[in-house]
Design a protein around this nucleic acid. Sequence first.
DNA 1: GATGAATGAGCTTTCATTCAT
DNA 2: GATGAATGAAAGCTCATTCAT
Lengths: 204, 204, 204, 204
Amino acid sequence: MPQAKRSRRKEARPEEIIDAALAEFAAVGYSAASMAQIAARAGIARSTIYLYYADKEALISAAFDLRLGQAFAAAGQGVALSSGPFREVFHEMLTLLYTRIVKSDALVLLKVLVAEGRQFPQLLTRYHDTALNAAMTMLTGLLKQGLARGELRPDVMGYDIKLVMSPIMLAAIWHLTFQELEPIDLAHYIEGHVSFICDGILTR
Amino acid sequence: MPQAKRSRRKEARPEEIIDAALAEFAAVGYSAASMAQIAARAGIARSTIYLYYADKEALISAAFDLRLGQAFAAAGQGVALSSGPFREVFHEMLTLLYTRIVKSDALVLLKVLVAEGRQFPQLLTRYHDTALNAAMTMLTGLLKQGLARGELRPDVMGYDIKLVMSPIMLAAIWHLTFQELEPIDLAHYIEGHVSFICDGILTR
Amino acid sequence: MPQAKRSRRKEARPEEIIDAALAEFAAVGYSAASMAQIAARAGIARSTIYLYYADKEALISAAFDLRLGQAFAAAGQGVALSSGPFREVFHEMLTLLYTRIVKSDALVLLKVLVAEGRQFPQLLTRYHDTALNAAMTMLTGLLKQGLARGELRPDVMGYDIKLVMSPIMLAAIWHLTFQELEPIDLAHYIEGHVSFICDGILTR
Amino acid sequence: MPQAKRSRRKEARPEEIIDAALAEFAAVGYSAASMAQIAARAGIARSTIYLYYADKEALISAAFDLRLGQAFAAAGQGVALSSGPFREVFHEMLTLLYTRIVKSDALVLLKVLVAEGRQFPQLLTRYHDTALNAAMTMLTGLLKQGLARGELRPDVMGYDIKLVMSPIMLAAIWHLTFQELEPIDLAHYIEGHVSFICDGILTR
DNA sequence: GATGAATGAGCTTTCATTCAT
DNA sequence: GATGAATGAAAGCTCATTCAT
């Protein structure tokens, strides 16, 4: 039996508010987002937000907690799956990352940080230390594995891992910004990513 | 004979104001930027801004005009210079692009677009059609040249040119956002960019 | 049982604000009226006004609605009352009109229209079509009645009814403007109005 | 020989400015009139106005001086002209007054006074004491003359002279305000004025 | 005498936030 | 717990006025 509507809503409130807030941040950014619009999106009164979050800044902070948490709840296990040749595993992992990042709700976070991150140094640090580091660690791990298998050029580890990750970020930014002007064909883009990076970092 | 103090300022004013505005946009974003702060940065009264720009939106629009104009005033000629092997010309061009983009004042424009571009579709289009297209055209031209010389894999042109450009954008975004948390060693980063991309797209 | 204090105020607010606004318009005109002063008169914060009226123009529009409505809620029935000789009925009606118009709060509306009506063509039209037309219709009806009774010169209807109404408007304008310099003795003025008009339009 | 253009303009400046100011007052009222618009109308720089008038209030004060002066330069002599029957002289004088008042530039003054006169008590007084009193004096004189000739009812002087003047004021106000909604046929209106008043105040 | 540049006070309006109900 | 009413601070912008040239 489902619970009564009322109590179900009560428990869901905080997350509903965050969802509404993120939707608004995505639409107009943090500064331009108004509590009124957020409340309207959540279908509640303006003042009700303050029952759950002390102020607008607490909202964005909680939004980061929630989305980063969600992002990592499902991540991490993808790496170990395959154990085939580097190119194959790399392709798998990139597909995973593109899906999780470019198409994810968490992309708003990046947008907010790029735009207004200086006002929220803790959020910058948190995002860097979790989301970005996680992606970089995954990729580094993958490279090390490929290196151990003798598939990669030995000097590869000497370069900045962000180079390997950069097409993902471009796709993410592009998705947020220029998608409507000039859409990216993601599947084909991933092929290119694998091809350009692999055929450069593989020994031969 | 130099002109009188007053008229000298008058000529310089518009640019001074744009500079101040861009500095403020860089610091807090467009929405959060206040005319008061911009005026303070420019060392003038709030209302003086309105002598030169009709409103806040005219300010950002003019800022785009100025910075995009400046960016292209000095660009373009670098390509034809070298005619050595692809790797060398590519390295030269990347060095040029990184300098012109990552370290440029025009980077704020990208930041504003990522954050609040939906409010300014014309600016989005303008930036896409000029800055981004210019960079992509330069890179495409370079690849075609390399292809003509037989230095590149023939299938290279089939992939999205943005892949070649992506490390630049990551560096740009990073510079804006995470530079203080984890700085990028740009010279070394460029080496990696050349190495990763070239050793993948060159025939062998 | 009376309602709680808060909700009582809420119901009264809109009208309180209109009252304050009209008082301010009466004092300094529409353009020169400041929302701050209106709020002060109403004993509320500036921003509270915006809970009830979208902007300053909405305020004057609502003020017209309210005052014209009030003016007509009590009007109209006075005509049918008497059925004595024309002079008597005319006197009764004028007394009614003078009271309702010259001493009314709605006089501010006329003042605003004279002064700044070009900025509000709809208000001009509304006032003309309701207030003025109503007065003119009442007077025209009265004349027709007198004509039917054979008390009036037959050519009377050929002239502009506004001539009959004009002493009322002069009194109204005077009341707004020169009352303190040179007050009008209204009762005596009405006598004169009746005398001058009647002894001119009656057959004999 | 006409003087040089420059010096002619110089002498004409003050009056040109007043003309521009009155035109602007007529259009939007005193408060809403901007010095910028007035200067634009006069074809000079904003600051040039201050060479001739200390501030905005001095402008309206000077405007009153000029217009009232002009109005009276040409007035007053019309009364003595005719010495025919009252009705004829009255008609002549009314025609004069309607032309001088309703179609005059000085009508703006009345408009400003109705709208914002409370801010300028001196102007109210001046206008009342000159323009209005002059008109009332002229009419009173005419009535006295008619009375002396035995053409008028003896009790006429007991009533407020403003009653005789009121159709003029209605026409003036109407002209300013509702002319476009419902124009007045002035010639016919004057006929009515004469007819209604005369046939009321004449003995028979 | 005339002006363009500049300003500060004040305007309307928005919005995050508080609080009585 | 939830809300509608209210507010104060601050935003963008206007405008009468001053002043160096």
